[in-house]
Nucleic acid binder design. Sequence first.
DNA 1: CGCATATATTGCGTGACACGCAATATCGGA
DNA 2: TCCGATATTGCGTGTCACGCAATATATGCG
Lengths: 207, 207
Amino acid sequence: MTDDAMDLRARNRRATREAISHAALRLAIEQGPHGLALVRVTDIATAAGVSPRTYNNYFSSREEAICALQADQARRLGEALRSRPAGEPFDQAVIAAVIELYTDPEPDKAGLRMIMQTPELEGEALKAFTMAEPPLAEAIADRTGTDVTRDLFPAVTAAAVAGAVRVAGRHWLAPATTESFATILRAALSCVVPSTPDFSSSRCRRD
Amino acid sequence: MTDDAMDLRARNRRATREAISHAALRLAIEQGPHGLALVRVTDIATAAGVSPRTYNNYFSSREEAICALQADQARRLGEALRSRPAGEPFDQAVIAAVIELYTDPEPDKAGLRMIMQTPELEGEALKAFTMAEPPLAEAIADRTGTDVTRDLFPAVTAAAVAGAVRVAGRHWLAPATTESFATILRAALSCVVPSTPDFSSSRCRRD
DNA sequence: CGCATATATTGCGTGACACGCAATATCGGA
DNA sequence: TCCGATATTGCGTGTCACGCAATATATGCG
């Protein structure tokens, strides 16, 4: 996961990928949610120091480039849960993992606002949050002793957690909100994460 | 909501809209998830009996046209919950509403498979499911005596329900599945819908 | 240290698409 | 039957994603 753990080529690839993504998000924020159409592919490529064709080697749409950071962060949610101590109760582990992941660096309010409040980005933003689900479902299954392919509980809970994070983000972005993101996340997650998981009725037999 | 309740012009508009959407979904199914790129705008318009330009007056992308039916159905979820008897327990009302909405006509397995298993449609499919959330959250708030703007519970639960429906759909589409969609929906929803809602910790003060 | 090879970057060309605009056809209502 | 509102359509334009082939760059080995 760390940089020196992978090939030099892979590191360069990731660097340019992040450069493009950062440039795309920055330009989008500059123009604001109403001027996203003004962010041309050429601008993104130029700002990232690559050719337009190279931009398209990494991303197949501006929306994908803009939301890539959010998507990458979401993908780490499964790992975040796995890194919680084994003895920790399920609900606390999930809540702690989410809060840790989404508040470790001070969350980028401008970026999140751009992504979540721009209609043209809605689909890609939802994709970004949904990226968290498969690895999170795996981690939940491992932690609760369930099976992703046989039980509905892991995937459903993962989807619920992702949805709660999304709703919490929207709430946090609202002008009248004063609470910290961590407080909102905790409140939102406690609505859907059971303190004592019961998957008895969510088990679906497969052959 | 019924046809005769609205203007004749509005009915015609809705008719052509549905014609285009049906044509788009049908053509997409014909080509399968791997050949979506072969479904040209001209084909959709021709199949719907309109000009390409008219197609673009109703939908701004092929993906949107293909997923429109799914989106419209999702939008009715709030109404479905409101139509449940007032005395019914919260969890049972939600589950019954979802099952009623998604199994009243025999669900279109081919359409759902096309929408949920085609990568290019992923974003639009997620948007379609997410369309259910705002009206559903309103209905949940009304039924539970909470406030959508002040409490996280309604929106979070709505997101969790939408996510559960999505996961249930994916499970139902899996080859090895033998249970009915209703059974899967019930199992999935019972993971996230509390039988006795507790929003004490989800209340967030706003000024 | 230099070379061969894999890999990344780039330029160009192409096909498709979304949409603004203005003209036309059509429909609904009086 | 006729008028006005509205939907439909054709055309032109700018943008974009992507296949392909050439070039530049970096990696690993002799």
